[in-house]
Design a protein around this nucleic acid. Structure first.
Lengths: 185, 185
DNA sequence: TCCTGCTATGCAACGAGTTGCATGAACAAG
DNA sequence: CTTGTTCATGCAACTCGTTGCATAGCAGGA
């Protein structure tokens, strides 16, 4: 399980509360590993029990107190160990691919709207990435080590979205062709 | 949940036993939706209860009897309904991306072997896809509707692997550059 | 004033997915 | 003759992930 480690990375980048972590998992780190606040709170508790993180209660004005978590040396070591361990090459689960294959047993034209919906979502995601890249990495040629690593991960996201958009266009072309072929017969 | 529907698609392509389905989920359909035999047997039972599939016991020589499942008209309808429903745009969980970001807090050179391992796995997967494409779609220009849909899904797999390989090479370049920079200081 | 929304944490229950194990018959390799 | 592999189905126990709900203070707008 990688959630523990995703949390360690995020807390090393900047300590924070469970709530703040949940926000980050809606953005940045969340683009590559998703988690809800429930999972996060549960795992934080376990990690605290394991001595990977420590908690400091911080009183705030105008809002509830929060528990700020930070990584202990043991936690840091656990992350370093995990980096050296092999990790399973990402099982992908692509519901849309299942639908495309299923379309052969139904009316393929029914899928066009759905594919366009996905296209719009991926297009928006690509824009987000590109905006973030322009903002955070205006000069990609001169980055320190940490920034270079964050940047290359973002570059992966960008290329993934571009590839996906191109594929969705291919799918749409096939669906339109099938519809045209059926209309004329 | 899409497992039911992935099973429906697979059984519409060809009826089969739970065991045979489990084999298929190691290949073809499994490239886009994974499942273990446990999940499959459990879901098959539920689907039978819902009247989506029907079971016929087939005696075999030299091996245990099997229960061949096939899709009922209700199951077919359930699939058609699902195709029209929106499906969540695939949450991706990329453990390697988490590791790359984590490498900033450890020795990035430790990751090189791991990234190369992934590169080899994706390279092998790409070869599989290309072999399959050459075998099953020697003339992609003239395909019937069903084959065109299967082919476009496979094309997605191919482009995904190509994109991933290019990204892994970028990651390796960054890791090597960091290692070189640290060695000289 | 009331309602909505944000920050902040958490419980309880459920459903999805994994792991380990068991059974039992056939066949091939050593 | 034993061991390992494939075919074939399944139980039990567990972890992971999701959903719904609860609480509670404060801010801002209708």
């Amino acid at each position: 399980m990688a959630l523990e480690y995703a949390i360690l990375v995020s807390l090393l980048e900047k300590p924070g509360s469970g709530y703040e972590l949940a926000r980050r998992f809606d953005r940045s780190i969340g683009y590559f590993w998703t988690a809800t606040h429930q999972q996060i709170y549960r795992v934080l508790k376990r990690m605290e029990g394991d001595g990977w993180i420590e908690v400091r209660e911080v009183a705030q004005e105008g809002r509830p107190d929060k528990k700020v978590h930070s990584v202990t040396p043991q936690g840091h070591r656990a992350l370093a160990d995990w980096l050296r361990e092999p990790v399973e090459p990402a099982t992908l689960r692509h519901g849309l691919a299942v639908k495309v294959r299923g379309a052969a047993f139904s009316d393929p034209a029914d899928l066009i709207g759905e594919v366009e919906r996905h296209r719009a979502a991926h297009s928006a995601r690509l824009e987000e990435y590109l905006t973030g890249e322009a903002r955070d990495f205006p000069d990609p040629a001169s980055l320190d080590d940490g920034a270079a690593l964050v940047h290359v991960v973002l570059r992966g996201g960008i290329e993934y979205e571009r590839m996906t958009l191109a594929w969705l266009d291919e799918v749409l072309a096939v669906l339109h062709r099938i519809r045209a072929g059926r209309a004329e017969s």
